[in-house]
Simulated assay, not measured.
Amino acid sequence: MWRLRALQPARQLLRARHATTQAGFTAEAIPQGRLEHHPILVSDGPTHDDQRRKVARFLAPAVVTERYGDLMAQVADRTVAQALESGRCRLDEAALHYTVEVTAELVGLTESDVPGLSRRLVSFFNQPPFDIARDDLGRSRLDWARAARNGLWPVARLWWHDVRPAIRARRRRRRTDIISHLLDEGYSRTSILVECVTYGTAGMVTTREFIVMAAWHLLGDDALRERYLAAEQPERLAVLEEIIRLEPVVGHLYRRVRQPVEITDGEQTWTIPPGDLVDVCVRATNTDPQAVGADPQQLCPGRGMPRGTAGYGLAFGDGEHKCPGQPLALLESDALLVRLLAHEPRLVAEPELGWDHLIEGYWLRGFELTLPSGSA
């Protein structure tokens, strides 16, 4: 097993097209051949390329802005209005419902209530820990039984309450969303269900964590918050990119090498042989002083990044498995944060910080805000 903590070698590994396969998110424990369409998150090779190409029309930056900009604004306005009415806001809960409502529109999970869908998506993360470097993931038989029980029950509930009615509605009339696209591609009900689980857990829920983390940073730095609120959207997005560079929601990206991959740090070269597992340590690569410059642990929006590397570093991955929802995640976060922070909320309870083994990322709970009376 290799661990890459420098940005240049990590980027080389992630960009070695078709030389590696997805090993994160328990991808290697998913039985092969059971589905005619492998989920986009864990598929590889030409099949994955074709999936990405077809889904890109839903998630391109211009499309997200044009098609979902008004929706994000409306849902964000409603979320903030509810917080103002009560005078309090538990941001981790508000952000969850907000991201689920927006992303559900894109995916097509629009035939059920948002709070219920939110609860069902969150329940997927009640899984026993595992060690990805071990063939059996380091789980006992009891752990595997718990994993099956805690995984299959949420899948069944999501199917019955959310996916089944969404498919029925789109069989009657197609819409501009991913479920309609999957039906046009001939996906079975089971394959559509798996894709909805993927988009729900990997997209909606992770954006929730970043919104809370970004708010935590902005509320703790008056100068940064004032700069953010005074800026136009491109500069605000640069601030958010710098925050997620420092605080990537997914902290580790795993790949299994299938063909020899050569990596270099400019001074020394290594060849990773087939069969080896590689752990790209995202937080370390994003704070590599050789790549991001002086004071890599400091928040500095607009810092110079290496050529070909975005301001968020590898926080959304890179190469063929780069997160296709990156534009949506940042625009969605900005739409809520700029509206909420404009009302000068006050932090009254910092969140509890924890770690989720399934996505190899952090979670934040109990982030309590109050809003000044009369701020509406």
Rank of each mutant, 00 (worst) to 15 (best):
D131Y: 06
E111N: 08
I272F: 10
M213W: 09
Q298V: 02
E195Y: 07
W216M: 05
S191N: 11
R307L: 10
R11M: 07
D318F: 07
Y312L: 04
T99M: 01
Q8K: 07
R67S: 09
S375W: 02
A133C: 00
A56R: 15
D276A: 11
D143P: 00
R149G: 06
M1K: 02
W160N: 04
H38D: 00
L240R: 02
E195F: 11
Q8E: 15
G266I: 04
V194C: 10
E93Y: 04
L229Q: 05
R88Y: 11
T110P: 06
Q127Y: 13
T47P: 05
A104Y: 15
G311S: 08
G311H: 06
G308Y: 12
A56E: 11
G69A: 14
R303S: 02
W160S: 04
R365M: 04
T206G: 13
P31C: 11
L277A: 10
E66W: 03
H18A: 11
V194E: 12
Q233M: 03
L158D: 15
R134L: 14
T264D: 02
A81E: 14
E235N: 06
R339A: 09
M72V: 08
V205W: 13
D334I: 03
E320T: 11
R172V: 13
I243V: 12
L96H: 14
G313V: 08
M213A: 14
R78D: 15
V100E: 01
K54S: 00
V348K: 04
D49C: 05
R172P: 05
G138S: 11
G69R: 14
P324D: 09
W216T: 06
A81I: 03
L336S: 04
G69V: 14
T110L: 02
T309Q: 08
V55K: 05
V114S: 12
A214G: 15
R189L: 00
P165V: 04
L277Q: 11
G302M: 06
E241R: 01
L35I: 00
L341S: 12
L299R: 01
V114R: 13
P129Y: 15
E66M: 02
Q8I: 05
D288E: 00
L364T: 04
Y362I: 00
T198P: 05
R346Y: 03
H343S: 03
T198N: 14
Q12D: 02
D318M: 01
A62E: 15
V42S: 11
K322I: 09
R172I: 09
R149V: 07
G275A: 03
L14A: 09
G293A: 11
P248W: 10
F125Q: 01
T287W: 06
P248D: 12
A342N: 06
M213K: 12
A166E: 02
Y199T: 02
D295R: 10
R120F: 03
A349R: 15
V155N: 07
A19C: 13
